[in-house]
Design a protein around this nucleic acid. Structure first.
Lengths: 207, 207
DNA sequence: CATATATTGCACAGTGTTGTGCAATTCCAG
DNA sequence: CTGGAATTGCACAACACTGTGCAATATATG
């Protein structure tokens, strides 16, 4: 009876999905959102959430898994390109921007308690790739910055977050935001503003 | 007797001061640090903290007051200067960097629950000044960015945080960090890297 | 309609945190 | 040394949150 094990059905799956989506949004707003807050926001009772996920940690874990997967997928197409570092960086930012909310959740949670420290490790490969790209650009002279590549990577990360917040506060149109993020990132890396703008326009048009 | 009202004495004042300092560090590490964590970190029992501050909110409130005051003081000397926007921005970043930890606490707390929303309002004047400065630079052509001035201000804010984290993780030497932050901020605003470097060097040497 | 399945509503124990009260104790100043 | 202030140690109530059990109910599918 009443087997809260939740096998699979139309609305069961839909509920599970909606709980995950709402949880992402809710945890983004407040990393300490309670199960009750999440449940109510998903139009469901707290008990139901526990029917789909055995614990709060399991719920967040699922979210983290999905986010890591999405992030890896976003970076994958860029792996083989070995051309201009500036162009690669532009593509990377545009790709990450599409899943910026998930990315943000990951880093926000990773900065949190030691418990979720495993996230940092799972993000490490992506970060490593970015750092190598930046280093290559610095070596070749495409980029120019007083910062070492790893610090520059931190800055780029935060730029994405800053612009997400800007979009949230309607200081920036959603449509332009991705390109603006790419241009700003390139500019921060030391690429002249005019070059950066032209490059991003080219990249985002050529797909 | 035992009036926990804590009037004033040598160690009483010293304890109060130390509690505030430790609380700043502790809350920076974890915005949800408990009173017990803070007390222990300060080498004191929880009950003692309540002798100096009637509530957790009062403790944080005191911290916020001090931080706002420090931030306002750091911005004050720049108010009257009406010269080159780039130079003003450089001075501003260098000044803020000196109290970056307090600044960071403010914004970290402001991003938190709605309760502490008043912080945003108290930070508004400082932000307004920065935005006006950026706007002026954009109008004059000193700065160049696809972002509107308010969004650019968000980015600058996050750059400071990113570099604080970099210093924390020893990716960046403490000594160079301030100047690096200034150069990076200028670069992001669209000032050519070479110009930015030269300008920051000049400003930080001339005092 | 009948039936399996998902959801709800409630109750409960366990846990961690806040804020307070009070007696015992430590500490510095006069 | 001694008196007054600060600190400590402990106990306590109030609250919020997690995770679980179980019966009642709603809902889709055959």
């Amino acid at each position: 009876m009443a087997a809260m094990t939740t096998g699979n059905s139309s609305r069961a799956e839909a509920n599970r999905r909606r709980i995950l989506d709402v949880a992402l949004a809710e945890l983004l707003r407040d990393p300490d959102a309670s199960m009750d807050q999440i449940a109510r926001a998903a139009g469901v009772v707290r008990r139901t959430v526990y029917g789909h996920f055995p614990s709060r940690e399991a719920l967040i874990g699922t979210l983290v898994d999905e986010a890591v997967e999405a992030l890896a997928a976003a970076h994958e197409p860029e792996r083989e390109a070995v051309g201009d570092p500036a162009e690669e960086l532009a593509r990377s930012v545009l790709a990450v921007w599409e899943i910026a909310d998930r990315y943000r959740l990951l880093v926000a949670l990773a900065q949190r308690t030691v418990t979720m420290q495993g996230i940092r490790e799972r993000l490490a490969p992506v970060r490593r790739d970015t750092i190598l790209l930046l280093q290559r650009g610095l070596d070749e002279g495409t980029f120019a910055s007083p910062l070492p590549a790893p610090a520059l990577a931190y800055v780029h990360e935060q730029i994405v977050f800053a612009l997400m917040e800007a979009v949230n506060d309607e200081l920036l149109s959603t449509h332009e935001a991705g390109r603006s993020a790419a241009v700003t990132t390139l500019t921060t890396a030391g690429v002249p503003a005019t070059l950066a703008t032209a490059l991003v326009t080219k990249v985002s048009e050529s797909g």
